[in-house]
Computed example of a mutant assay.
Amino acid sequence: MQQAEARTQPQTTGPQNTWPQNAWYVACTSAELAVGEGAKPLGRQICGERVVFYRDGEGRVAALEDFCPHRGAPLSLGFVRDGHLVCGYHGLVMGCEGRTVSMPEQRVDRFPTIRRFPTIERYGFVWIWPGDPERADPAKLHHLPWAESPDWAYGGGLYHIQCDYRLMVDNLMDLTHETYVHAGSIGQKEIDEAPVETLVEGEEVITRRFMEGVSAPPFWRMGLRGAGLPEDSVVDRWQICRFNLPSHVMIEVGVALTGQGGYAADRSVKASSIVVDFITPETETSHWYFWGMARNFAADDAALTDTIREGQGKIFSEDLEMLERQQQNLLRHPDRRLLKLNIDAGGVRSRMLIDKAIREEQGA
């Protein structure tokens, strides 16, 4: 068992603004934006900004401030016509660049322009840049090699969670909680017993844990079956959590038949995946959580994808209740000081990167 040194730390540290602005965040999935005449736009709050998303006549994504320049109504309550967004209040027609196109029986040439947000549609997601549009560099978009390979399958979902997005980062960068929160699916006592290592490589924080000669928990017994391996096998298991700005966590997870090389074992003797976590702030105490799993075994098995998605959804719903209740406690006791142990190093290092990015934006 690890020896943990307890230190008291303030509950919140760093700049007052809690998220970087000049970064690409997942705003929605491509499937959430309907195509065609009469399609309904999508309204969503991202990093404190209320934004309306829709597709123009060419199917391209547009993202505008969710504010009609006429009377301030939400444009997300309107509809799409001829590739333009029509306000559902008085029929004002808005172009993709944020300029009013027309309005029944009215002159609109002097209507104020509303804000337009840079977007990229890639990997099945729509990404938004909430900061300075002049700095919106597509090259800074998080690269997902698995999303470009036919050898991988992906399935996922979305949760709207009422807590500070950084609490989810903490949660994902310290998987010790699996033993307790997810005891019936992915948790096992060996997680507590295995040493955890945290390191920083450039702008990436890595927390990793390896377990040798263990029994596979229920979720990974299913994974072994899906990979065509005996589900009751003794396995070596790994968890490698990778945090990248602004708030993405990719977790390499898997099991291999014991003694075959563990994480480095041949694909024929293991079931491995990447837990995909895109955490997009909504407000100071809420966020959008785009979760999923990419796997490189049985990639053409759609039924297995659905089964994994269902199982993963149940696992993450258990996190949801814990995190929302944690947030309520923190709001109720804002002056309490929280303990930091060595198992919290991944979350602490991740927050340090977030705070550094914010300070740089503010010119501090």
Rank of each mutant, 00 (worst) to 15 (best):
D170G: 09
Q312E: 08
D82P: 00
L167A: 06
D335E: 13
G95M: 01
K356G: 00
V275M: 11
V80T: 04
V196C: 07
G155Q: 11
Q45E: 14
V205H: 05
I120D: 08
T12D: 09
I274V: 13
W238H: 15
Q239E: 10
R116S: 15
W146I: 01
S317Q: 14
G347W: 13
I315Q: 10
T258H: 13
A23P: 10
H90D: 08
N17T: 13
A271G: 09
E204Q: 15
A357L: 05
W291D: 09
P10N: 05
R116A: 14
S149H: 08
R351Y: 06
I315F: 03
L341Y: 12
H84W: 01
V234N: 08
R309H: 09
G78E: 06
G184W: 00
A39D: 08
L172Y: 12
R337T: 08
E65G: 02
T179Q: 14
G155I: 01
G262E: 09
R50L: 00
L320E: 15
A364E: 15
A4M: 11
I251C: 07
T207F: 07
K340M: 07
E148Q: 14
I279T: 05
D132E: 12
S30G: 14
D164F: 03
H287K: 01
G155N: 05
A294S: 14
R336G: 13
L341A: 02
P130R: 04
K40I: 00
P130G: 04
T207R: 15
E252Q: 15
R166D: 01
W288P: 02
W24H: 05
W146P: 00
Q2N: 10
E201W: 00
L141V: 10
A136S: 12
L75F: 02
P217Q: 02
C241L: 12
I354R: 05
F117N: 10
A303M: 12
P112T: 04
A139F: 01
P74G: 03
M222T: 12
R332S: 15
T179R: 11
D301G: 06
V181D: 02
Q162A: 15
G292I: 08
I279D: 05
A194Q: 05
D132W: 01
E324I: 00
E204S: 04
L341G: 04
E58T: 13
Q326H: 06
H70P: 06
R99Q: 13
G223R: 13
C96H: 00
Y159E: 14
F316Q: 08
E37S: 11
V275N: 09
Q11Y: 00
G38C: 08
A39Q: 08
W129C: 08
D164A: 05
A27K: 11
G124F: 13
V348D: 02
H160R: 15
G261I: 05
I46G: 06
V126L: 05
W152S: 04
W127F: 15
T18F: 01
